[in-house]
Amino acid sequence: MNRRRLFVLATGASALLAGTSLAGAQEWKPDRPINLIVPWGAGGSTDQVTRVTAPILAEALGVDVVVVNQPGASGAIGTQEVLNAPHDGYTWTANAIANNATYSVSGLLEDTDIDDWHIYLSVANVPVVSVPANSEFTDFGQLLEALKARGQEITVATAGITSSGGTAIAALSDAADGFEYNMITYDGGGPAAIATASGEAMMTTQLAVEQTELIRGGRLKALAVLSDQPLVLEGVDPIPPITEWIPDMDLAPDYFGIFIPSDAPAEVLATVDKIWAEKVLNSPELKTYAETFGAVFAPSYGAEARALAMPVVILEACSSVERGEAVNDPSTIGIDCATRTETGL
């Protein structure tokens, strides 16, 4: 009888704790290294920010967080590996949320959506429209006119249709009455920016983080940032926001972060939640990274992160339908493209 009462008390207490916060859940002490799978190549934008974040987590957890690069099929292969691995909290992935949450729409993975993951966001990256230093275009207005008048002749360097740059130029075209353009695909955002700097392509719409050094070095001329705020980069003039030319453009910052399968043990998620709140939320390393590379330092986790991430997921899912690339309709992951809202399943 004693035992029984104890049991009731215990469940009652845990229910109470669960109701208020997870902070009281048992702390997780990993006993072996954690594999953090980056489904993109080493040295890319996802890899870079992940390698800055991993040591912070490693220090807090007291075990190594090993970054493993598993590139292929726009990140789908590495993501699949994480989903296949035991969901014991020892295998995580890192990605851009817009990619991670739309693999089932693009047909690259079956039956997965944003709720398969517990989300930890670290930075938001914004695309920047840049042209070679010696380009004929000196401001975005001129470039926009040229795109509308002779779009087929304008070559746009990106890392592919599903990449941030590819999404950005498609969104620009949507917002400006559907101009045409000749998109040239490179093996990553870095190579796309280099090709633009060398004059092979006429413009690029890759992420700021992939262009900063070339902009600072005077090889790329940044014309506009796809945001409603100007982008301030140390050492160069502030980059004007796109809203100066296209005021009503749909904008959604692309968040990068770390994702743990949501059915991992509760203490794993609770512990990482705690680390994110205490360490990552005010990490000087990530702040410096964001400032130097033109990213926005925007850490969040759990439900808050999911809410922040949803706009870019909706944008990515629905524009892939418009581009005719979607294999499964976004309604299969609970997104209604007519209203551009989440309806749930």
Binding site: G43, D47, Q48, E213, R216, G217, T292
Partner: peptide, 14 residues
């Protein structure tokens, strides 16, 4: 390059 950044060294034109 990623490692240099972690350690506060910024390679590039500057």
């Amino acid at each position: 390059i990623a490692a240099m950044f972690i350690h506060g060294i910024r390679p590039g034109p500057l």
